[in-house]
Amino acid sequence: MMDLKGVTLQFDDFTALDNINLHIEKGSAFGLLGSNGAGKSTVLRLLSGVYKAKSGNVLVDGEEVFDNVNAKKKIFFINDETVQFGGMTLKELKEFYKGYYESFSGELFDSLNDVIKLPVNKKMDKFSKGMKRQAIVITGIAAQTDYLLLDEAFDGLDPTMRIIVKRMLVDAMIDRKLTTVISSHNLKEINEVCDSAALLHQGKILFNRDLDSIKGNVHKIQAAFKGEMTKENFTDMEVLHFERRQSITYMIVKGDLEFIKNNINEKKPDILDIIPLTLEEIFIYEMEGMGYDYKGNN
């Protein structure tokens, strides 16, 4: 498992992470969500031992990660850059990482490449961005570390390749209980791969939850009442968003669906519809509920 305990990190006057607490279970697929500059990449760099926290602890299986070879052996970090491998061929990339990771499997690398069929002896600076991403992802999987950290992992991949790469990741998670931490601002991708996620905003974690529970716990209500209803009429529910358009009231409500239904029915609505929410909508309304303006106005 990976833990960030009370981690703060500052870049000069800018607080990149502010007293972050995060727990990632071993064998899980964890998503880090957030807008640009939220601190997702910073968390991954802390978890991979690239950055050192100014205060707090960054632990992998109970060990501090920074400058700890034993901990770092268990982690493979794929950042959002691809240019650093430009001078290498795929074969050289394999040899490069093979020397650092004892667990690296050349056979697995080759078998994964059999699927995506990247040229082995061609310099990677001739590769497209997507091809480079594929190359480094299969390298990360072939390293067979306990933890795989991916920063904007699917950036640049075409839809087909996204499916293939996700499949590879899922297979690895199933086969050897690989813990994956994926950062993205694309909720759909997180939704497809991860089982839990944290939402970062301005260096803070807004929430950290199981995705199924998130999805099952936030509901979009469309109702029409005889009288004029305001948000104050629903104080017994956790209303993340309230909006009236003519006679129709739209609400995003967090909580048990039966409880919400009963609560609204007590106010005798003429119409009551429960509309499914996308994960993106859930996050936007969650943030709004916490006082953050999703339009970026804080």
């Binding site: 991979s48 031992g49 690239v50 400058d67 070879v69 982690i75 493979f76 950042n79 650093q84 650092y100």
Partner: peptide, 15 residues
């Protein structure tokens, strides 16, 4: 070189 730092420092080798 910013593009190199993550790869270099995340490797399992002590500083």
């Amino acid at each position: 070189k910013k593009s190199e730092v993550d790869m270099a420092l995340s490797l399992p080798i002590s500083r």
